[in-house]
Design a protein around this nucleic acid. Sequence first.
DNA 1: ATTTATTGTAACCATTATAGTTACATTTTG
DNA 2: CAAAATGTAACTATAATGGTTACAATAAAT
Lengths: 137, 137
Amino acid sequence: MINTRFSVAIHILTLVATNSDKGVTSNFIAGSVNTNPVVIRRIGSLLKKANLLKGGPGVAGYSLVAEPNKITLLDIYRAVTTGEELFAVHDQPNPNCDVGKNIQSSLDISLTRAQQAMENELNKQTLADIIQHLSIQ
Amino acid sequence: MINTRFSVAIHILTLVATNSDKGVTSNFIAGSVNTNPVVIRRIGSLLKKANLLKGGPGVAGYSLVAEPNKITLLDIYRAVTTGEELFAVHDQPNPNCDVGKNIQSSLDISLTRAQQAMENELNKQTLADIIQHLSIQ
DNA sequence: ATTTATTGTAACCATTATAGTTACATTTTG
DNA sequence: CAAAATGTAACTATAATGGTTACAATAAAT
């Protein structure tokens, strides 16, 4: 299971997008996510490195760098999973076995396709879609 | 990152498929995967519950229930991730916040699509594809 | 029948990841 | 200068993961 940083990151960006009038502080966000403000700042830090969020020490609250319909879920996913693979593959299969010798590259072909398919779908959806789904419950 | 049980499960089934003459024991498999036989038997147990493998106490080695081209990677994925979601969502968002109140169902819509896309791709690939990739390195 | 080899599973352990927390330096605003 | 934020290091508790030992249960071979 992929950890909650991705869903929390989406939550953060959604709050910033829908409260652009107020100062959306880590404290405010933590109250909505129901966690500690440091957890928010930690993920906020990743989102800033990915150029999705603005803000900094002294500045009260975060703001978006781009419009919600320009921020894809893939952008957010990549921000919080900095380049890691979706599927782990076991380390040291036996090189003296025909299967062990080649299984990693064989797995790589298939698992990369699955990851690609997921990322393609994330790339079709934006923060604006998330916001829209909020209202039509 | 998804744990190595999935890739080890594929490795196990590949060995069983390509060594149907010999008795493919947990010991033999462990030597190829490079782990402890109990780890293999543990995953083997899941694959038996999913009706992908045959074998049992007293019987030396495992054998396949179906032909490799009838076993999809999705079958294997489902066997080792017994029904759990791909993406974790944080637990208790604040119900007194418009975003917190609805974010879980909004996330569910989007993340389910991404999981579906991945599973659709896994469903297109079979154990036979894995075996074929082994030889064309 | 007895021996042998094997699987199934419980129990335990070490390592790692995760999320929460405290503390404090840094920075901007007023 | 004071107040209010953020950034980040450091520490903690909890849980997941994979490895290991141990042993009961089973089937095959002799």
